[in-house]
């Protein structure tokens, strides 16, 4: 599903964002990427989406190589991804539901599914009552949830969520984490970055990737699974 071997990423200005990343993620896995701000979490997701290509090393996503010489794979890969961008990237001037629907339109989903899937997705993030509000008039937390609804409505095989709880209160953050986790049950691979470690402390399944200054280390999950926290 995802395979990285000796992957380096150096931006055009010389910033070394990722160093020698080796990892393997199977289909249907849930992956939490944690690390301080500026450590390279977003950079790794950019590689997976083909926004950047590895400076060196081998990277395979959904069975396709994502290196410089394989740029034509990128659109194919992106169509199978449900992306939640750190800065949302919603289309201004359109309603929440229009934004969610647009994510499906570009895939050529049949018209009859558009409204149904969009309403279902908005319901899952708890925003049904704001479906017909322009995203410009939503709070940051609400916009973040629209972005999440847009990603999941696409029925992707890979969800990439970059700090999806960054603007949410604890209650909504937990709800979103549980929602994203639930896609694992549909054999969707879910990758979530966060610097809010408290949100994953009491989770006991999935893979934990710790990013530090561009290096990625795999750690076991569920260290604390016996001592339940009350939030």
């Amino acid at each position: 599903m995802i395979k990285a071997k000796g992957v380096y990423l150096e931006y055009r200005d010389g910033t070394k964002a990722l160093n020698n990343v080796d990892l393997q993620i199977k289909q249907g896995e849930i992956v939490y990427i944690i690390g301080p701000s500026g450590s390279g979490k977003t950079s790794f997701l950019k590689l997976l989406m083909g926004i950047e290509q590895p400076t060196s090393g081998e990277l395979t996503v959904l069975g396709k190589e994502m290196n410089k010489e394989h740029k034509k794979n990128i659109r194919q890969i992106r169509r199978q991804i449900g992306p939640v961008f750190q800065e949302f990237k919603l289309i201004p001037g359109r309603t929440a539901i229009d934004n969610v629907i647009l994510g499906m339109r570009v895939l050529g989903m049949p018209r009859v599914l558009l409204n149904k899937n969009a309403l279902e997705a908005l319901e899952k993030v708890g925003l049904t009552h704001k479906a017909f509000t322009k995203v410009d008039n939503l709070s940051w937390g609400e916009r973040q949830r629209v972005a999440i609804a847009r990603a999941v409505a696409r029925k992707p095989s890979l969800i990439l969520a970059d700090e999806p709880t960054g603007n949410l209160d604890v209650k909504n953050a937990l709800r979103i984490m549980e929602l994203l986790r639930s896609f694992k049950d549909e054999n969707t691979t879910v990758i979530i970055t966060t610097h809010a470690t408290h949100l994953i402390e009491n989770l006991n399944e999935g893979i934990l990737l710790k990013v530090n200054k561009g290096s990625i280390q795999q750690e076991s999950m569920g260290r604390d699974c016996n001592e339940k926290h009350h939030l």
Binding site: M49, I51, R75, Q76, I77, R78, R79, Q80, I81, P83, F85, K89, L90, I91, P92, L102, G103, R105, V106, L107, R154
Partner: peptide, 16 residues
């Protein structure tokens, strides 16, 4: 251009 970039990230074809 921002909207167009978003559409590309969502996998929209150039024709779309």
């Amino acid at each position: 251009k921002d909207e167009i970039n978003t559409l590309r990230l969502l996998g929209a074809s150039e024709v779309f």
